[in-house]
Nucleic acid binder design. Structure first.
Length: 553
RNA sequence: GGCCCUAUGGAGAAGUGGCUUAACUCAUCGCCCUCUCAAGGCGACAUUCACGAGUUCGAAUCUCGUUAGGGUCACCA
């Protein structure tokens, strides 16, 4: 029995050939240098921060070369699949402005190189497998899990490399007649690729991030088609990236080890392998101080949803991830005042090959800078949109009086160097709740204590004088000048220098007076500019709070 | 364990044999400014590039070894 006859036995209904596929999926008509990249997630859960990192780079590389970025859904692992997660992945990508040009879009597909969902590509895989069988480079394997375990244990005993290869590849040595017989008898089987490699020999591989290096040839007869008829990753990768005409495969470094498999597959099929860029994994330090991959189970920041739900600006995360990708991005974006990040050119060679430790502090930095750039209307709209979805407490504050909320956020905002008080919307309600009478009263017992060096009488004296002598009708300059005068009249030093020169002759400094007033009005030591806080609160509320604190002392 | 990758401060890193007594960013800490809180300005933070040898007039940069960390060895991707 010939190999072709065996191929026909296994795939009687496959009549098309690889040539037909080549015609059906011709090379793309793209300008010189245009790169075709792809993000190929499996629908097994929420979008991981590492996946966002990878897809952002894929998207960027395609955009900056005027190429194509597409999404392909790798849904061949039916056991781990989570219904609806494919669509969710696309939606989350969209939030971060990583929008594909073609491919899988959740509820529909776009493009000439589809289908873009692997479970819909059975015919393509079967055509290629049939070809491989007919040229003697693939064969059915009837080994069961027990057989494989047995082989493995023998290999371990003999200290040999484990796996299905060479003499250990039992089913390699079956005759086609035996194969046909067992198939006809209904025995379950997988299809394995017949490797011609030898792990003693090395091949040179090129990685866009790491450069060239040597690695052992593949000699494993890997499974290309599982017993459920679906392809494995390695095989699907070769078929899909070839027929979808991917020029650059960008993926995590966990794939480096299987590069020899992929290269042998491409060679055997007579296809040009794509360029590869293996990205480092984003890490975190564990309890023992060891680096480990960001884990969805252990680290909240591993799920992109965390940033969305906590009210971070998506752009802030993207900017942070860009600095991990190309560290020169930081300087670039600072010089560009955080604008037009699309003009930045990403370089593979500048991507570090070591996994960076995820730095929340830096995400906060970007988020704070970005949030400070908006005017009051923009930031209010953004806060409201966020609150409506994720934060009832914040929504409640906004809905009490949107203009009031706007004024709170507008304190020292629309100016050359705006304040950078807020880093995300997630804790905004807590940050501003003292502006609201009810919240202020609710938290009255939790307020920050006054400086211990002042007695209740000192504080009362300061407060009653302030209340009587300070009017909010004056401008900021005059108001502070006035406060200074009151402070001096009560025995406080007008400035730090004076105080430092003779601390014993003063009760304190103007700063102490401002702190007393600040704690009285807000319950906190750190708040926006006191003058504007009072303007927003209004005279009535200010008077009430001062009187209330005086009476409670 | 085999194979592959990596190793510069608290974090991200620049650095490709002399320009480096190691850029820049975040964080931290100080000082200045100031009427408060921020912002801003200035400064501190690796005499040394995991360690050890070697090559060289000269090494963070090249070579070898050691150590440490990461990845990978599925009918998962």
């Amino acid at each position: 029995m010939t190999d072709i006859e065996l191929a026909n036995l296994i795939f009687p209904n496959i009549t098309k050939t690889i040539d037909d596929l080549e015609k059906r999926y011709p090379p793309r008509n793209l300008p010189e240098g245009a790169e075709v990249t792809r993000f190929a997630p499996s629908p097994t859960g929420f979008l991981h921060t590492g996946s966002l990192f990878t897809s952002m780079i894929c998207h960027k590389v395609a955009k900056q070369s005027k190429g194509v970025f597409y999404v392909r859904l790798e849904d061949t692992d039916t056991k781990r699949e989570i219904q609806g997660s494919g669509k969710q992945l696309i939606e989350q990508l969209k939030i971060f402005n990583v929008i594909p040009d073609e491919g899988y879009f959740g509820d529909h597909q776009v493009g000439d190189y589809g289908p873009y969902v692997q479970s819909e590509r059975a015919e393509i895989y079967n055509i290629v497998i049939k070809h491989l069988i007919s040229i003697g480079r693939a064969y059915p394997c009837f080994c069961k899990a027990e057989d494989l375990d047995f082989i493995r244990s023998k290999q371990e005993q003999a200290k040999l490399i484990p796996g299905y290869y060479g003499q250990f590849a039992k089913c390699r040595f079956l005759t086609n007649e035996e194969r046909a017989e067992r198939i006809k008898a209904g025995e379950p089987y997988v299809i394995r690729f017949k490797s011609s490699g030898n792990h003693v020999r090395k091949i040179r591989v090129k990685d866009l991030v790491r450069g060239e290096f040597e690695i052992a040839q593949n000699d494993q007869d890997i499974v290309i088609c599982k017993s459920d008829g679906l392809p494995t990753y390695h095989f699907a990768h070769a078929c899909d990236d070839h027929f979808m005409r991917t020029t650059t495969v960008i993926r995590g470094e966990e794939w480096i080890a299987s590069l020899p498999i992929h290269i042998e597959l491409f060679e055997t099929l007579g296809w040009k392998a794509p360029n590869y860029a293996h990205l480092p994994v984003i890490c975190k330090l564990d309890e023992e101080g060891h680096k480990r991959k960001l884990s969805k189970r252990l680290d909240s920041e591993a799920a992109v949803s965390y940033f969305i739900e906590d009210g971070y600006l998506p752009k802030a995360l993207i900017m942070y991830l860009m600095t991990i990708a190309n560290s020169n991005f930081e300087e670039w974006i600072l010089n560009n005042k955080f604008e037009n990040m699309d003009d930045f050119v990403l370089t593979f060679a500048k991507i570090s090959s070591e996994g960076a430790l995820f730095d929340m502090g830096k995400v906060n930095f970007f988020s704070r800078e970005l949030l400070a750039k908006f005017n009051k209307d923009e930031i209010t709209a953004l806060a409201k949109a966020y609150a409506e979805k994720y934060n009832p407490k914040l929504l409640d504050l906004i809905n009490k009086d949107e203009n009031y909320f706007k004024e709170i956020l507008n304190i020292e905002r629309e100016k050359e160097n705006p304040r950078k008080d807020y880093e995300k919307f997630g804790n905004l309600a807590d940050a501003i709740e003292f502006f609201y009478h009810d919240s202020y009263m609710d938290k009255i017992n939790e307020r920050c204590p006054f400086n211990e060096k002042f007695t209740a009488d000192d504080i009362k004296l300061v407060l009653s004088n302030m209340k009587d002598k300070l009017s909010l009708d004056q401008d900021e300059q005059s108001w502070f000048a006035n406060m200074k005068d009151v402070a001096v009249s009560l025995g406080f030093a007008a400035n730090n220098k004076e105080y430092k020169a003779a601390p014993e002759s003063f009760k304190g400094t103007v700063g102490d007076v401002a702190e007393i007033l600040r704690i009285t009005l807000t319950g906190r030591k750190n708040t926006p500019n006191l003058y504007y806080v009072m303007k927003v609160l209004g005279k009535e509320e200010v008077d009430f709070r001062i009187s209330y604190i005086i009476s409670s002392l």
